[in-house]
């Protein structure tokens, strides 16, 4: 916001300014899990879908809640909390809970990320985005790309590639 204000006086360059401002911001789809606030770059998200029926898959890795049917395409549903190692109090016993689906990843084989609730799409200036701190309580940092300090909370920007990457042949 500050940026735009500063450059406002130069009327003749208005179009250019907006362009610049756009180039210097990024948009994120945000969502909540427990007390944490997460975001994914909007380009990594295909669609948001409420309440898809999750069919459990026995013997699946712990973080996989099951599979969902998205218009004939069958997607793997990944529980965000379990995937990123959120403290067990938040992740446990939530299999019965209703989740929202953030359909994300590459178009060949998207995955459905199960989150508690969906937030807004936020536009954030790039220079407010920082690398993640050395530690975020209860979260495996390998899934975190960046963070952004907002007024009241921390937006944790997730790494969609890490989230969707299969860890095959693990014992389960």
């Amino acid at each position: 916001m500050r940026q735009t204000n500063e450059t406002l006086p130069a009327v003749g360059e208005k179009g250019k300014v907006i362009e610049m401002a756009m180039a210097e911001t990024s948009q994120f789809v945000t969502f909540y899990y427990g007390k944490h606030f997460f975001g994914l770059p909007i380009d990594d998200v295909i669609e948001i879908n409420r309440m898809l029926d999750v069919t459990p898959v026995p013997m699946a890795p712990d973080y996989v809640s099951g599979v969902v049917n998205l218009r004939g395409q069958i997607l793997t549903a990944i529980n965000l909390a379990k995937r990123i190692g959120l403290a067990t109090t938040e992740a446990s016993d939530d299999d019965g809970k209703e989740h929202n689906n953030v359909i994300m990843g590459n178009r060949e084989e998207p995955v459905s990320l199960l989150v508690e609730s969906i937030g807004d799409v936020m536009t954030i200036p790039n220079d407010e985005i920082e690398p993640p701190p050395d530690m975020i309580e209860g979260i495996n940092l390998k899934y975190v790309n960046q963070v952004c300090k907002l007024d009241s909370k921390l937006l944790i920007i997730l790494d969609s590639k890490a989230l969707e990457k299969a860890e095959n042949n693990k014992n389960n």
Partner: peptide, 27 residues
């Protein structure tokens, strides 16, 4: 027959998935 995603492919007891008449998935 629809294939299982890469997270689930390695589970030996499943050959794939399919959609049932009610739109739900069956393994």
């Amino acid at each position: 027959v629809k294939p299982l995603g890469s997270h689930l492919k390695h589970i030996p007891v499943f050959a794939g998935t399919t959609l049932m008449g009610d739109g739900r998935v069956a393994l």
